[in-house]
């Protein structure tokens, strides 16, 4: 079976030195009640890189992503074992406030979820909850964020119109702009393009390349071409079936530079998945 073509840029990046570690995940298992969703995940996510999580459905990619900004705290019964360090601090230490964590580690969701407010108020939402009240400051942030999300030219004349009147792709870019408006350190993206057409997807991928010099990005994707196009490193997850209890638990199979994962994976499972023989 033919190997996937890996773009030159990715190969170049793969050879580059890794940035500072942002997240250090050690032996993390996540439970929903008694159900073990993922077990023993260990990986390091580096600064100013795009890290992709790939794998079949139910393998725990999204679960791991959501443990990185404590979004899983919102699910009753969810619990994390193991240790996640974010820039040297334990993310799940007692004195850590999930609110403070999420201000630094933003998230873009699978389904665009703009608030039923105006386009302007959507982008200004984050800065406002952080106490920015001055109109001129907010105007500047809104313009900068919408420009970063490559949406400014399309919406600059209708900032006061409802965000729900936009197309799906525009809504997703608005959600990205909303996330960038609080100037996070890390942007987590949970299949941000799964509901978008190839043109809108292309826009968002370009956008990721443009902003990664300022942010660290972790993206969950079902689209392997997308992983090769945008990411520097790729983590491949798979599902382990427990015969006794008939439950499925996600495991991290392999984590490496994207070029390595797609061209020369060390684990045969990875090879099967990325070449389309499995999953």
């Amino acid at each position: 079976m033919a190997k996937l073509e890996v773009p030159e840029t990715v190969k170049d990046k793969a050879a580059a030195e890794p940035g500072n570690p942002v997240f250090d995940v050690r032996d993390v298992s996540t439970y929903y009640g008694n159900f073990k969703a993922v077990k023993n995940v260990s990986l390091t996510i580096h600064e100013n890189e795009v890290t992709a999580f790939i794998g079949p459905s139910g393998c725990g990619k999204t679960t791991v992503l959501r443990t990185l900004n404590r979004m899983n705290d919102l699910i009753p019964g969810a619990r994390v074992e193991g240790d996640i360090t974010y820039r040297g601090q334990s993310l799940y230490a007692k004195q850590v406030s999930p609110t403070a964590v999420r201000r630094r580690i933003g998230m873009v969701f699978q389904k665009a979820n703009p608030f039923p407010k105006s386009i302007y108020d959507n982008v200004a939402y984050g800065p406002r909850i952080n106490g920015i009240r001055k109109k001129s400051d907010l105007d500047g942030i809104v313009e900068r964020s919408l420009k970063q999300a490559a949406l400014w030219d399309e919406v600059k004349n209708r900032l006061n119109k409802s965000a729900l009147g936009m197309s799906g792709g525009q809504q997703q870019r608005l959600c990205i702009a909303r996330t960038l408006a609080v100037e996070p350190d890390v942007v987590l993206m949970d299949e941000p393009c799964s509901a978008l057409d190839p043109i809108a997807t292309g826009r968002i991928e370009d956008l990721m390349q443009e902003i990664k010099s300022q942010y660290t990005i972790v993206i969950v994707t079902h689209n392997m071409q997308q992983a090769t196009r945008v990411s520097d490193r790729t983590a491949f997850y798979s599902v382990e079936r427990n015969e006794e209890s008939d439950t499925r638990t996600g495991v991290l199979v392999e984590y490496d530079q994207t070029a390595k994962i797609f061209e020369n994976p060390s684990n045969p499972l990875t090879g099967d998945y990325v070449t389309g023989r499995m999953g």
């Binding site: 919102l74 201000r103 998230m107 969701f109 979820n113 703009p114 608030f115 984050g126 909303r178 996330t179």
Partner: peptide, 9 residues
């Protein structure tokens, strides 16, 4: 919508 807001801190 709740998650969107939580994710902004």
């Amino acid at each position: 919508l709740r998650e969107g807001s939580y994710a902004l801190g």
